[in-house]
Computed example of a mutant assay.
Amino acid sequence: MALCGYNGLLIYATYQNCDPLTTKLAKARDQLLPLFVMKTLGELPGMTGLFIAGVFSAALSSLSTCLNSMSAVVLEDFVKPYVKKPLSTSAINWIMRLVVVGVGVLCVCLVYVVEHMGTVLQLTMSLEAITNGPLFGIFTIGLFMPWINGNSALLGGIMGVIAMSWVSLNAQWAIASGAITYDTKPLNVEQCDYSFNVTTSLANTTHLGASAEVSNNT
């Protein structure tokens, strides 16, 4: 989180007087970091490729861990308890592979949903809250409240997931629909060193740099 905050400060300091979103150089906030990397490291051979390789390697390492963990959980908690005969090694391998493929396909399909629900980081933090809160409660019960039995803890966890899902998903829907908006820091395009077109109205005035081309729509 500290690194993300530091990156945000660097990006704001760099583009404070030439907002790429206003000039349409970037279409979404998630594109600001790659744009920043291209601007600062684009002249150094191989650095942008190294950045892309680092992003993909970090994403793939996390994804592979999650997929392997998910397949193991499904096998141990949802398959083995309901199978009377011990599973062979071949059957276990096929079950885990099918789970990985199924979860992977689901993740790919959810990409089309995520792109309409705000920035990736904000969405990730909101969705993590759905499970992190109930998990913290269950672990707290196990450590400090031994008189609570397993069924009660499970029921409490399920109710916590339902409650947090309602809060988080409603918040994401409100953000996606524009019902919830956040104030941003002041930005302008006065020091842009490239040409762009901006459509403005009488109520909204945009200040442009010397090299900018403006198309006023009154």
Rank of each mutant, 00 (worst) to 15 (best):
residue 9 L to K: 15
residue 204 N to M: 13
residue 161 V to G: 03
residue 132 N to I: 07
residue 178 G to D: 02
residue 148 I to N: 08
residue 199 T to C: 14
residue 139 F to M: 06
residue 210 A to F: 11
residue 155 L to Q: 12
residue 58 A to W: 08
residue 16 Q to L: 03
residue 1 M to D: 04
residue 59 A to I: 02
residue 158 I to H: 08
residue 51 F to R: 03
residue 128 E to P: 05
residue 56 F to G: 01
residue 105 V to M: 10
residue 17 N to K: 08
residue 145 M to T: 01
residue 41 L to D: 04
residue 44 L to I: 15
residue 179 A to C: 03
residue 24 K to C: 04
residue 140 T to A: 14
residue 55 V to E: 07
residue 202 L to E: 11
residue 27 K to I: 02
residue 92 I to E: 12
residue 53 A to L: 10
residue 169 L to E: 00
residue 50 L to K: 02
residue 95 I to Y: 11
residue 98 L to M: 13
residue 114 V to H: 10
residue 103 V to R: 11
residue 203 A to S: 13
residue 61 S to W: 01
residue 1 M to R: 14
residue 130 I to Q: 04
residue 139 F to C: 03
residue 53 A to D: 02
residue 31 Q to A: 13
residue 101 V to N: 05
residue 1 M to F: 15
residue 49 G to D: 10
residue 98 L to E: 09
residue 104 G to C: 02
residue 50 L to R: 10
residue 83 V to D: 05
residue 1 M to S: 14
residue 74 V to F: 15
residue 26 A to F: 05
residue 88 S to G: 12
residue 97 R to F: 15
residue 89 T to H: 09
residue 123 L to M: 03
residue 34 P to N: 02
residue 94 W to H: 15
residue 171 A to W: 12
residue 35 L to C: 09
residue 34 P to F: 03
residue 157 G to Y: 10
residue 108 V to A: 14
residue 215 S to H: 09
residue 35 L to E: 05
residue 39 K to L: 14
residue 178 G to I: 06
residue 59 A to G: 05
residue 82 Y to C: 01
residue 50 L to T: 02
residue 191 Q to G: 00
residue 88 S to N: 08
residue 122 Q to K: 14
residue 63 L to K: 13
residue 157 G to L: 07
residue 85 K to L: 09
residue 17 N to Q: 06
residue 162 I to V: 13
residue 109 C to G: 09
residue 142 G to Q: 10
residue 183 D to V: 10
residue 90 S to M: 13
residue 60 L to F: 14
residue 29 R to G: 01
residue 115 E to I: 13
residue 176 A to Y: 04
residue 15 Y to E: 00
residue 68 N to V: 10
residue 116 H to R: 15
residue 173 W to R: 12
residue 196 F to K: 09
residue 123 L to G: 00
residue 112 Y to L: 15
residue 161 V to Q: 08
residue 52 I to T: 07
residue 153 A to Y: 07
residue 132 N to Q: 04
residue 101 V to F: 13
residue 112 Y to S: 14
residue 125 M to I: 03
residue 102 G to H: 07
residue 30 D to N: 11
residue 89 T to R: 11
residue 4 C to A: 14
residue 71 S to M: 08
residue 10 L to N: 15
residue 207 H to K: 14
residue 160 G to L: 13
residue 95 I to P: 15
residue 5 G to N: 08
residue 195 S to C: 12
residue 109 C to L: 15
residue 208 L to A: 04
residue 88 S to M: 01
residue 54 G to H: 09
residue 218 T to C: 12
residue 67 L to C: 05
